[in-house]
Simulated scan of single mutants.
Amino acid sequence: MATQFQNRLVGTLILVSLGVIFLPDVFDGEKAHYQESYQAIPLREDFDETLLQTPIEAPEDVDTFLPQDEPVSVTIGDDVDNGHTDDVTAEGRMPVADDNALPKTGYADSAWIIRLGTFRNIDNAKNLVTTLRSKGYPAQLMPRNVKEGELARVEIGPDVSKDNLAAMTADLESLTGLKGQLLRFNPLNP
């Protein structure tokens, strides 16, 4: 026995549910369908067949500047004054070249540098370089992108004239208190 209120409530729910289902389709209007334009990817690209028939030229022989496997005189430790050296071959380990050794052919007209010192504290090395530059010396820090904890060398030069740099050593010693070494500049391994 359903009451009149229950019948009206059920009827209202049915009409509302039908409205929720069908009214959006009525008010939406005509639907537009979008189709993407695309092009098919070719399976194989066309190319010039004559390229397969042309011969390939042999590479040219070029002289290289790589070091040869020769014994190298290496100074061990702080025994520079007494001339204690060992001959080390390039087999098994990298040879360490002596800075005072005669240059290879082609570097006879090389430049010269003054190495003032090697520093572990980068700030001290940078301060020394700025002091020297403010006094007019062509000072530089080598290697240029040195990181904290690595060794940094302070160098003056390079200069083609060995006599000009030799004249600077006394002035640099009085200015910095460091006795610099006059060394040959190697452009391949500065």
Rank of each mutant, 00 (worst) to 15 (best):
T105Y: 08
V146W: 05
D109V: 04
G117H: 05
N121C: 03
D123H: 11
T64R: 14
M94F: 07
R93P: 04
I56T: 15
R115L: 00
A90T: 10
A101S: 15
D78Q: 10
T75W: 01
V72M: 00
N121W: 04
N82F: 12
P138C: 06
F65P: 01
V72G: 01
L66Y: 05
R133H: 05
L116V: 04
L102W: 05
D98F: 02
T85H: 00
T130K: 13
P71K: 05
G92K: 04
M142V: 15
R93A: 13
Q140V: 07
R144K: 11
H84P: 02
G77A: 12
I114L: 15
E70P: 02
T118W: 03
P103W: 03
D87Q: 11
I56C: 12
P143N: 11
I113A: 01
Y137W: 14
D109R: 09
P103M: 05
N124G: 11
K135N: 07
T64Y: 12
L132V: 03
V88L: 04
G136W: 12
T89D: 15
Y137I: 08
I114T: 10
N121A: 11
L141S: 12
A139Q: 04
P143F: 13
A58D: 14
P143W: 10
K135G: 01
I56Q: 15
G136Y: 12
M142C: 02
V96D: 04
Y107G: 03
T64C: 14
D79M: 11
S110C: 06
I56N: 14
I76H: 02
D87E: 15
V80S: 01
N124E: 08
K104I: 10
L116A: 04
F119A: 04
G136A: 08
R133K: 14
P67N: 12
G117N: 04
P103Q: 09
E57P: 08
E57Q: 15
V129L: 02
M94E: 12
R133P: 06
T75H: 00
P138A: 06
I114Y: 08
L116E: 00
I76K: 10
S110P: 02
G117W: 05
W112Y: 15
N100R: 02
L132K: 04
E91C: 05
D61M: 09
V129P: 00
T89V: 07
V96L: 07
D78F: 08
D69T: 04
Q68G: 06
P95Y: 03
K126W: 02
T75V: 09
I56W: 15
L102M: 12
K104C: 03
P143V: 12
D61C: 06
D63K: 11
F119W: 08
S134R: 13
T131A: 10
V129H: 01
